[in-house]
């Protein structure tokens, strides 16, 4: 059983007087394996939040199927083992962190004594200990984000859905958030998070799904997506007369006082390196250039247009 399975999810919004239709999701298909970190990547307005809201039953999908831990969204129990951190979360500012978490726990029907202990541990875990009894209106944006994560974890969920968890965080906050997500994976949890920032993804996700204009364009293991895509090789050398070099390979550039040649295949690399050495040149580096996630993303975006 998958942690999350979405098949052909469609969603259309209508303008105020039902005149105009906006097709936001045009058939989303994605699968999240248990125990992995899944990155849901896409530019603003691609349909990330809409997809997440359909998964949580906050929006009613027009078509398609969503299974959370094997259960359909219509069943309220499908949310029992899910934790959710909304984008730019807001909580009742008249409550303290402890009161908010107690309230969140009450929505899960958790037994009170266990809850008290868990709240203390969670606040410590997200780095809010010492601020438990401060009213939330005094919290900074980063603290609210941390608290949002704590309330998402109140039920010890198997699947964590985070909508733009890194937005609005300072570098320390980002580092902490990253560490927390890793520790959750270690504890055997599934983490599904969305972002429009590529660096967030590259350093941590197991698998990624790229959504563009309401459709999943690519999905796969990050290592596979990148391994499949060595594009060319770069050979850097020096000490060779420029006239000789031009005879070996016309396609070169000068960078930092070195000559850099761009070669299409590894067969060419052998040949070219031999020639350079033969002409008293010195090889500094041979680099296979792989596509970054960013390149994949932008090439998809170009295809889409």
């Amino acid at each position: 059983m998958k942690a999350l399975e979405i098949k052909g999810l469609r969603k259309t919004f209508r303008s105020n007087f039902m005149l105009k239709k906006y097709r936001v999701l045009k058939g989303i298909d994605l699968e999240v394996e248990r125990g992995e970190i899944y990155g849901f990547l896409g530019p603003n307005g691609a349909g990330k939040t809409t997809t997440i809201k359909c998964v949580l039953g906050l929006l009613n999908a027009d078509g398609g199927e969503v299974l959370v831990e094997g259960r359909p969204v219509a069943a309220i129990d499908s949310r029992r083992c899910v934790g959710f951190l909304p984008e730019n979360p807001y909580f009742y500012d008249y409550l303290t962190a402890r009161e908010l978490l107690t309230f969140a726990a009450s929505l899960f029907d958790l037994p009170p004594p266990a809850v008290r202990e868990r709240i203390g541990a969670l606040l410590h875990r997200v780095g809010l200990s010492g601020r438990e009894d401060l009213k939330l209106r005094k919290y900074s944006k980063g603290m609210i984000q941390r608290l949002g994560l704590a309330q998402a974890l109140i039920n010890d969920p198997d699947l964590l859905i985070l909508d733009e968890p890194f937005s609005g965080l300072d570098p320390i906050g980002r580092k902490d958030m990253r560490a927390l997500i890793f520790s959750l994976r270690e504890a055997g949890k599934t983490v599904f998070f969305s972002s429009h920032i590529l660096q967030d993804m590259e350093m941590m996700v197991d698998r990624v799904g790229i959504i563009l204009d309401g459709v999943i364009r690519r999905q796969g293991k990050l290592s596979e997506l990148i391994a499949r895509s060595t594009q060319y090789y770069e050979v850097a050398c020096t000490g060779i007369a420029e006239g000789r070099l031009a005879q070996i390979q016309s396609n070169y550039a000068v960078r930092d006082g070195h000559y850099v040649l761009t070669l299409a295949s590894d067969a060419d690399v052998n040949l070219v390196v031999e020639s350079i050495i033969h002409n008293d040149g010195r090889i500094i580096a041979v680099t296979p250039v792989k596509m970054t996630l960013e390149d994949i993303f932008f090439s998809e975006m170009r295809n889409g247009q």
Partner: peptide
């Protein structure tokens, strides 16, 4: 309006 309802209805609350 302030979307706190999201925090409630995304939990097992009908």
């Amino acid at each position: 309006e302030k979307k706190t309802v999201l925090n409630i209805l995304s939990k097992p609350v009908s």
